[in-house]
Simulated scan of single mutants.
Amino acid sequence: MKTALGIAALFGLFMLALSAGRLWLSPDQLLVSLRAGPEEDVLLWHLRMPRALAGLFIGAGLGLAGAVFQSLLRNSLASPDIIGVSQGAALGGVAAQLAGVVTMLGALSGGVLATALIFVLSLSRRAGLDPRRLILYGIGVGITCSAALSILLIRAGDAAAGQAMAWLAGSLNAMGWQEVQIAALALVVGALVLLPASHSLDRLEFGDDPARGWGLAIHRLRPLLLLSAALLASAMVALAGTFSFVAFVSGPLARKMGRGQVSLVAAAACGSGLVTLADIATRIFAPSALMPAGIYTSLIGAPLLVLILHKKVTRDQI
Protein backbone atom coordinates (compact mmCIF):
# COMPACT_ATOMS: atom_id res chain seq x y z
CA MET A 1 0.00 0.00 0.00
CA LYS A 2 2.77 2.44 0.92
CA THR A 3 4.63 1.58 -2.28
CA ALA A 4 1.58 2.31 -4.39
CA LEU A 5 0.98 5.60 -2.59
CA GLY A 6 4.63 6.58 -3.05
CA ILE A 7 4.53 5.84 -6.79
CA ALA A 8 1.28 7.78 -7.13
CA ALA A 9 2.71 10.75 -5.22
CA LEU A 10 5.87 10.81 -7.34
CA PHE A 11 3.84 10.58 -10.55
CA GLY A 12 1.64 13.42 -9.34
CA LEU A 13 4.68 15.60 -8.63
CA PHE A 14 6.08 14.82 -12.08
CA MET A 15 2.84 15.84 -13.79
CA LEU A 16 2.70 19.00 -11.67
CA ALA A 17 6.28 19.81 -12.71
CA LEU A 18 5.18 19.58 -16.35
CA SER A 19 2.24 21.91 -15.70
CA ALA A 20 3.91 24.55 -13.47
CA GLY A 21 5.45 27.77 -14.72
CA ARG A 22 4.59 31.29 -15.80
CA LEU A 23 2.20 29.66 -18.25
CA TRP A 24 0.27 27.03 -16.30
CA LEU A 25 -1.14 24.07 -18.17
CA SER A 26 -4.48 22.66 -17.12
CA PRO A 27 -4.88 18.86 -17.13
CA ASP A 28 -6.62 19.06 -20.50
CA GLN A 29 -3.93 21.32 -21.97
CA LEU A 30 -1.21 19.04 -20.61
CA LEU A 31 -2.84 16.00 -22.20
CA VAL A 32 -3.09 17.81 -25.55
CA SER A 33 0.58 18.85 -25.32
CA LEU A 34 1.68 15.32 -24.51
CA ARG A 35 -0.19 14.01 -27.52
CA ALA A 36 1.15 16.75 -29.80
CA GLY A 37 4.72 15.52 -29.61
CA PRO A 38 8.07 17.36 -29.59
CA GLU A 39 7.70 18.84 -33.06
CA GLU A 40 4.52 20.76 -32.24
CA ASP A 41 4.92 21.67 -28.56
CA VAL A 42 8.26 23.26 -27.74
CA LEU A 43 7.33 24.44 -24.23
CA LEU A 44 6.53 20.98 -22.91
CA TRP A 45 8.90 18.72 -24.83
CA HIS A 46 12.01 20.91 -25.05
CA LEU A 47 11.81 22.90 -21.82
CA ARG A 48 9.67 21.30 -19.13
CA MET A 49 9.96 17.60 -19.94
CA PRO A 50 13.80 17.40 -19.86
CA ARG A 51 13.85 19.59 -16.76
CA ALA A 52 11.35 17.38 -14.94
CA LEU A 53 13.09 14.14 -15.97
CA ALA A 54 16.48 15.52 -14.96
CA GLY A 55 15.06 16.40 -11.55
CA LEU A 56 13.78 12.86 -11.10
CA PHE A 57 17.06 11.24 -12.09
CA ILE A 58 19.34 13.62 -10.19
CA GLY A 59 17.23 13.38 -7.04
CA ALA A 60 17.16 9.59 -7.28
CA GLY A 61 20.93 9.44 -7.64
CA LEU A 62 21.52 11.67 -4.63
CA GLY A 63 18.96 9.83 -2.50
CA LEU A 64 20.43 6.45 -3.42
CA ALA A 65 24.01 7.56 -2.73
CA GLY A 66 23.06 9.09 0.62
CA ALA A 67 21.24 5.98 1.81
CA VAL A 68 24.20 3.76 0.86
CA PHE A 69 26.65 5.97 2.78
CA GLN A 70 24.47 6.07 5.89
CA SER A 71 23.84 2.33 5.85
CA LEU A 72 27.44 1.29 5.18
CA LEU A 73 28.84 3.57 7.85
CA ARG A 74 25.93 3.11 10.28
CA ASN A 75 25.66 6.85 10.86
CA SER A 76 22.96 9.30 9.78
CA LEU A 77 25.65 11.99 9.32
CA ALA A 78 27.50 9.90 6.75
CA SER A 79 26.08 11.59 3.68
CA PRO A 80 28.01 12.71 0.55
CA ASP A 81 27.06 16.32 1.23
CA ILE A 82 28.38 16.12 4.79
CA ILE A 83 31.62 14.16 4.54
CA GLY A 84 33.34 15.99 1.72
CA VAL A 85 32.29 14.28 -1.52
CA SER A 86 29.86 16.96 -2.68
CA GLN A 87 32.18 19.72 -1.47
CA GLY A 88 35.01 18.27 -3.55
CA ALA A 89 32.76 18.09 -6.59
CA ALA A 90 31.62 21.67 -6.02
CA LEU A 91 35.21 22.89 -5.72
CA GLY A 92 36.20 21.08 -8.90
CA GLY A 93 33.20 22.43 -10.79
CA VAL A 94 33.82 26.06 -9.83
CA ALA A 95 37.55 25.73 -10.54
CA ALA A 96 36.69 24.37 -13.99
CA GLN A 97 34.27 27.24 -14.64
CA LEU A 98 36.84 29.86 -13.71
CA ALA A 99 39.51 28.13 -15.82
CA GLY A 100 37.23 27.87 -18.85
CA VAL A 101 37.08 24.06 -18.69
CA VAL A 102 33.91 21.95 -18.92
CA THR A 103 32.16 22.28 -15.55
CA MET A 104 30.94 18.69 -15.50
CA LEU A 105 34.44 17.31 -16.01
CA GLY A 106 35.88 19.48 -13.24
CA ALA A 107 33.12 18.59 -10.77
CA LEU A 108 33.43 14.87 -11.43
CA SER A 109 37.21 15.06 -11.04
CA GLY A 110 36.89 17.05 -7.81
CA GLY A 111 34.47 14.51 -6.34
CA VAL A 112 36.73 11.60 -7.29
CA LEU A 113 39.84 13.25 -5.85
CA ALA A 114 38.07 14.17 -2.61
CA THR A 115 36.79 10.61 -2.26
CA ALA A 116 40.23 9.16 -2.94
CA LEU A 117 41.80 11.43 -0.32
CA ILE A 118 39.18 10.49 2.28
CA PHE A 119 39.68 6.80 1.56
CA VAL A 120 43.47 7.02 1.87
CA LEU A 121 43.27 8.89 5.16
CA SER A 122 40.67 6.46 6.54
CA LEU A 123 42.56 3.24 5.83
CA SER A 124 43.54 1.23 8.87
CA ARG A 125 46.03 -1.64 8.85
CA ARG A 126 43.80 -3.75 11.09
CA ALA A 127 40.27 -2.86 10.04
CA GLY A 128 40.79 -1.68 6.46
CA LEU A 129 38.42 1.20 5.71
CA ASP A 130 37.44 2.44 9.17
CA PRO A 131 33.91 3.99 9.16
CA ARG A 132 34.58 6.32 12.10
CA ARG A 133 37.81 7.64 10.61
CA LEU A 134 36.10 8.04 7.24
CA ILE A 135 33.39 10.25 8.72
CA LEU A 136 35.84 12.41 10.68
CA TYR A 137 38.34 12.79 7.87
CA GLY A 138 35.48 13.33 5.43
CA ILE A 139 34.15 16.24 7.48
CA GLY A 140 37.66 17.69 7.59
CA VAL A 141 38.11 17.33 3.81
CA GLY A 142 34.69 18.90 3.29
CA ILE A 143 35.57 21.93 5.42
CA THR A 144 38.88 22.30 3.56
CA CYS A 145 37.16 22.14 0.18
CA SER A 146 34.58 24.69 1.30
CA ALA A 147 37.36 27.05 2.44
CA ALA A 148 39.19 26.65 -0.87
CA LEU A 149 35.93 27.29 -2.70
CA SER A 150 35.41 30.52 -0.75
CA ILE A 151 38.88 31.68 -1.76
CA LEU A 152 38.12 30.99 -5.44
CA LEU A 153 34.84 32.92 -5.26
CA ILE A 154 36.43 35.90 -3.51
CA ARG A 155 39.22 36.10 -6.08
CA ALA A 156 36.85 35.72 -9.05
CA GLY A 157 35.18 38.69 -10.68
CA ASP A 158 31.61 39.64 -9.86
CA ALA A 159 30.15 38.08 -13.00
CA ALA A 160 32.10 34.84 -12.68
CA ALA A 161 31.36 34.58 -8.96
CA GLY A 162 27.64 35.16 -9.56
CA GLN A 163 27.54 32.45 -12.21
CA ALA A 164 29.40 30.05 -9.94
CA MET A 165 27.10 30.77 -6.99
CA ALA A 166 24.01 30.12 -9.13
CA TRP A 167 25.46 26.75 -10.16
CA LEU A 168 26.50 25.89 -6.61
CA ALA A 169 22.97 26.41 -5.30
CA GLY A 170 21.71 23.61 -7.55
CA SER A 171 19.56 24.44 -10.55
CA LEU A 172 17.59 22.63 -13.24
CA ASN A 173 17.11 25.77 -15.33
CA ALA A 174 19.55 24.76 -18.08
CA MET A 175 18.61 21.09 -18.30
CA GLY A 176 18.23 19.69 -21.81
CA TRP A 177 17.90 16.24 -23.32
CA GLN A 178 21.68 15.73 -23.28
CA GLU A 179 21.79 16.28 -19.52
CA VAL A 180 18.81 13.94 -19.10
CA GLN A 181 20.66 11.19 -20.96
CA ILE A 182 23.79 11.65 -18.86
CA ALA A 183 21.80 11.66 -15.61
CA ALA A 184 19.87 8.55 -16.67
CA LEU A 185 23.09 6.74 -17.63
CA ALA A 186 24.79 7.62 -14.33
CA LEU A 187 21.72 6.54 -12.37
CA VAL A 188 21.40 3.22 -14.21
CA VAL A 189 25.08 2.37 -13.77
CA GLY A 190 24.99 3.33 -10.09
CA ALA A 191 21.79 1.40 -9.48
CA LEU A 192 23.17 -1.73 -11.16
CA VAL A 193 26.04 -1.71 -8.67
CA LEU A 194 24.25 -0.54 -5.53
CA LEU A 195 20.74 -2.01 -5.61
CA PRO A 196 21.87 -5.67 -5.63
CA ALA A 197 23.73 -4.92 -2.38
CA SER A 198 20.55 -4.11 -0.41
CA HIS A 199 20.59 -7.45 1.38
CA SER A 200 24.26 -7.02 2.30
CA LEU A 201 23.56 -3.53 3.65
CA ASP A 202 20.88 -4.98 5.93
CA ARG A 203 23.45 -7.37 7.38
CA LEU A 204 26.20 -4.76 7.69
CA GLU A 205 23.98 -2.67 9.94
CA PHE A 206 24.26 -5.35 12.62
CA GLY A 207 28.01 -4.68 12.81
CA ASP A 208 31.17 -5.91 11.14
CA ASP A 209 31.61 -9.05 13.21
CA PRO A 210 28.11 -10.47 12.55
CA ALA A 211 28.49 -9.51 8.87
CA ARG A 212 31.74 -11.46 8.65
CA GLY A 213 29.98 -14.38 10.30
CA TRP A 214 27.44 -14.29 7.48
CA GLY A 215 30.27 -14.57 4.98
CA LEU A 216 30.46 -10.96 3.76
CA ALA A 217 33.88 -9.81 2.52
CA ILE A 218 33.66 -6.42 4.24
CA HIS A 219 37.17 -5.30 3.29
CA ARG A 220 36.16 -5.47 -0.38
CA LEU A 221 32.43 -4.75 -0.21
CA ARG A 222 32.52 -1.50 1.79
CA PRO A 223 35.13 0.32 -0.37
CA LEU A 224 33.41 -0.81 -3.59
CA LEU A 225 29.98 0.40 -2.53
CA LEU A 226 31.25 3.64 -0.99
CA LEU A 227 33.26 4.45 -4.11
CA SER A 228 30.28 3.70 -6.35
CA ALA A 229 27.98 5.89 -4.23
CA ALA A 230 30.55 8.69 -4.18
CA LEU A 231 30.91 8.58 -7.98
CA LEU A 232 27.14 8.63 -8.39
CA ALA A 233 26.78 11.66 -6.10
CA SER A 234 29.66 13.43 -7.86
CA ALA A 235 28.06 12.83 -11.25
CA MET A 236 24.78 14.37 -10.11
CA VAL A 237 26.54 17.38 -8.60
CA ALA A 238 28.52 17.74 -11.83
CA LEU A 239 25.28 17.96 -13.81
CA ALA A 240 23.32 20.49 -11.80
CA GLY A 241 25.27 21.70 -8.77
CA THR A 242 24.65 20.90 -5.13
CA PHE A 243 21.13 20.16 -3.88
CA SER A 244 21.53 20.50 -0.14
CA PHE A 245 19.89 17.98 2.20
CA VAL A 246 18.64 15.64 -0.57
CA ALA A 247 21.21 12.91 0.05
CA PHE A 248 21.15 13.66 3.77
CA VAL A 249 17.40 13.41 4.39
CA SER A 250 16.32 10.80 1.79
CA GLY A 251 17.68 7.83 3.76
CA PRO A 252 16.04 8.72 7.11
CA LEU A 253 12.81 9.61 5.34
CA ALA A 254 12.79 6.26 3.52
CA ARG A 255 13.49 4.45 6.79
CA LYS A 256 10.60 6.25 8.41
CA MET A 257 8.32 5.09 5.64
CA GLY A 258 9.71 1.55 5.80
CA ARG A 259 9.61 1.17 9.59
CA GLY A 260 13.36 1.33 10.03
CA GLN A 261 14.35 -1.04 7.22
CA VAL A 262 16.97 -0.20 4.59
CA SER A 263 15.22 0.53 1.28
CA LEU A 264 17.46 1.95 -1.42
CA VAL A 265 14.59 2.19 -3.90
CA ALA A 266 12.51 4.17 -1.40
CA ALA A 267 15.48 6.48 -0.70
CA ALA A 268 15.91 7.09 -4.43
CA ALA A 269 12.18 7.85 -4.74
CA CYS A 270 12.38 10.28 -1.80
CA GLY A 271 15.31 12.05 -3.45
CA SER A 272 13.37 12.33 -6.71
CA GLY A 273 10.37 13.71 -4.88
CA LEU A 274 12.41 16.30 -2.95
CA VAL A 275 14.18 17.68 -6.03
CA THR A 276 10.96 17.71 -8.08
CA LEU A 277 9.04 19.42 -5.29
CA ALA A 278 11.80 22.01 -4.93
CA ASP A 279 11.79 22.69 -8.67
CA ILE A 280 8.00 23.14 -8.60
CA ALA A 281 8.43 25.61 -5.74
CA THR A 282 10.85 27.70 -7.82
CA ARG A 283 8.22 28.06 -10.52
CA ILE A 284 5.38 28.82 -8.12
CA PHE A 285 7.06 31.37 -5.84
CA ALA A 286 9.49 32.97 -8.32
CA PRO A 287 8.32 32.16 -11.86
CA SER A 288 10.15 35.07 -13.45
CA ALA A 289 13.38 34.88 -11.45
CA LEU A 290 13.68 31.04 -11.52
CA MET A 291 15.64 30.77 -8.29
CA PRO A 292 17.93 27.74 -7.96
CA ALA A 293 16.00 24.69 -6.80
CA GLY A 294 18.78 23.86 -4.31
CA ILE A 295 17.58 26.73 -2.13
CA TYR A 296 14.21 25.06 -1.78
CA THR A 297 15.66 21.60 -1.10
CA SER A 298 17.26 23.15 1.97
CA LEU A 299 13.99 24.80 3.00
CA ILE A 300 12.13 21.50 2.53
CA GLY A 301 14.81 19.04 3.66
CA ALA A 302 16.02 20.76 6.84
CA PRO A 303 12.61 20.81 8.61
CA LEU A 304 11.99 17.21 7.52
CA LEU A 305 15.30 16.13 9.03
CA VAL A 306 14.62 18.01 12.27
CA LEU A 307 11.19 16.38 12.52
CA ILE A 308 12.60 12.89 11.92
CA LEU A 309 15.38 13.37 14.48
CA HIS A 310 12.95 14.85 17.02
CA LYS A 311 10.67 11.83 16.73
CA LYS A 312 13.65 9.48 17.05
CA VAL A 313 14.95 11.23 20.17
CA THR A 314 11.46 11.28 21.69
CA ARG A 315 10.97 7.58 20.97
CA ASP A 316 14.38 6.67 22.47
CA GLN A 317 13.57 8.58 25.68
CA ILE A 318 10.31 6.73 26.23
Rank of each mutant, 00 (worst) to 15 (best):
A67T: 07
I118K: 09
L121I: 00
T282A: 09
R126M: 07
L194I: 05
W214K: 05
W177T: 05
I308E: 08
R155L: 15
T314P: 11
A116E: 01
L43R: 13
P50M: 05
L91A: 13
T297L: 05
A148E: 03
S263N: 15
S122D: 14
A191Y: 06
F243A: 08
V237K: 05
S200A: 12
L123A: 11
A267V: 07
A78K: 10
A36G: 13
S86G: 11
L277C: 07
F243E: 08
V101I: 13
I7K: 00
S234N: 07
K256R: 11
A54T: 15
S150Q: 13
F245H: 06
G106S: 09
P252G: 00
L5N: 03
M15T: 08
T103Y: 00
L226P: 01
P223R: 11
L187V: 04
A107P: 12
C270S: 06
I284S: 03
L304H: 01
L307N: 06
L264W: 04
A247L: 09
V188Q: 01
L305S: 10
D208V: 02
L10K: 02
L10W: 09
P50N: 11
D316N: 05
L309T: 13
S288G: 14
Q87V: 06
V265C: 07
I83P: 06
W177R: 10
P210R: 06
T115H: 03
D81Q: 11
G251S: 15
T282P: 12
L105C: 08
I308C: 05
P292L: 03
P210Y: 04
A127I: 01
L221R: 07
S234F: 01
L290T: 10
A166M: 05
A268W: 03
V306L: 15
W24A: 14
V68N: 11
F57T: 10
V120R: 15
S200D: 11
V141N: 04
L172Y: 00
A4P: 00
Y296Q: 09
I139D: 03
L187I: 03
G301E: 05
I284F: 02
L299N: 11
S79P: 13
S124C: 04
V313Y: 10
R203W: 00
L216C: 07
H199Q: 14
H310Y: 12
L225E: 09
G215C: 02
